[in-house]
Amino acid sequence: MNDNIHSLIGAYAVDAVTPDERADFDAHLAACEDCATELVGLREAAATLGAAEATAPPAALRARVMDQVGRTAQLPPVAGDDARVTPRAEVTGASSPRERRGWPRLAVAAAVAAVLAVGGLAGSTLLGQRDSTSEDQRALEKDVMMVTSAPDAHAMDLGLGSAHLVMSDKMGSVVAMGEDCPEPEDGMEYQLWVVMEDGSKHAGPTFMPDPDGSFMTLMEMDMEGVAAFAVTEEPAGGSDQPTTDVVAEVGL
């Protein structure tokens, strides 16, 4: 059987396999260093064939791809990679470092209370919200796309399912979006927080994942003095200050 599967390497390299054969060979590949090594070369050869077909792609393709990319969450790296992410499991344990650190008890300075712009986008515009109209959703998607495609857009793992945070100084906005987001506790919603360098926290929008775990939310704000973003679970409607432990956090 092993000989048989090994002989499939050429067919596998040019995708001349059925889904079953592909799965079998994938499994074989994980265990067979010879095949893995040989496959690198065969794939490069296949790529050379493919690259020879290069044409000028239709001009409209680029915008469509970038638009879709702006709305498409990425898979996280395979385990073992850089993990700035705070997995949920780590922060719920009673003795976890995160929980002990807790929230700094600092009052919100009135002077900086206005970090969150009061534009139509500030607050809880969100895709997953069940009562939001499709018009709202389209507007949100468009705004999210503009943020994520801004030249200075910068993305970071959020650690809530496959969620990531995309921020753009230029657009003065932060987007949180992702898939595979776990449901919050009954009666709770997620809420995004802006953590300032002085430790103060400013309430951001609340959001709920779709039944399939995807969500998208956007917040307009000034990035000046921002140290981190955090997510907590809060009672429906959100809170002025966090009332529960952080379930995900990203430092800048």
């Binding site: 002989s7 050429g10 067919a11 040019v14 070369g41 065969l42 490069e44 050869a45 296949a46 050379t48």
Partner: peptide
Amino acid sequence: TAKARIRDAMIRLRDTW
């Protein structure tokens, strides 16, 4: 034969390049 032909072809391409 079919499997071997594909593989041989790809190896030959690889080595030629």
